[in-house]
Amino acid sequence: MSSTKIFLKSSDDKTFEIDETAARASETLKNIIDGGCLDGVIPLPNVSSNILPKVIEYCKKHGGDNGSSKKIANGGVDKDKEILPDYDEEEDKREKVRVDELKKWEEEYMDFDQQVLYDLMLAANYLHIKGLLDLTVEKAASMIRGRTPDQIRENFNINSDFTPEEEEEMILIEDEWDDEWAFD
């Protein structure tokens, strides 16, 4: 299927090309396209030229399906589908291969440092690309899981507003939690 080309301009005035079908993975771009305000180039003042290609790469891969390898449980089964369709072993295998392939792609795609991760997250948020936002947020969460509060503050540029006494008290409770594990 041939598709109209769309041009995106990054914050530092570089222009990138993307298929319309791919661009529709972004809610924001989709609305601009559907709104008919397409005037040659879409300026994206919040996305720089080192992030935009990454975003385009994601959109190309997902070309409008707007999802990630994880199916988001949205309160149950697909309404349009028959209740309990005949279980198709073959299709299930194909589905598994597809998901595995996508997971592998995501893994390679997500191989970058933290600054890029946050920039990409901001871009995904700005462009409303749900799948990409989920992907980056999950990655960020998995990275900070084991960190200390100090590292978290540094990470998110947050200043502690607890008094040393208050903080001490909170740490005590946490120690007790750890103690609990050991005690059992």
């Binding site: 997250m121 901001l122 948020n125 936002l133 947020v137 999950e138 960020a140 969460a141 900070i144 899981r145 084991g146 200390t148 509060p149 978290i152 503050r153 998110f156 947050i158 200043n159 502690s160 507003d161 607890f162 208050e166 903080e167 909170m170 740490i171 946490e174 939690w177």
Partner: peptide
């Protein structure tokens, strides 16, 4: 986005991060 990230954290991390800021 910080909220978004925190919403994917397990209990134990949330508990530890209580003292990050008020």
């Amino acid at each position: 986005l910080i909220v978004e990230i925190l919403s994917r954290l397990p209990l134990k991390s949330l508990l530890r991060f209580r003292c990050v800021c008020k």
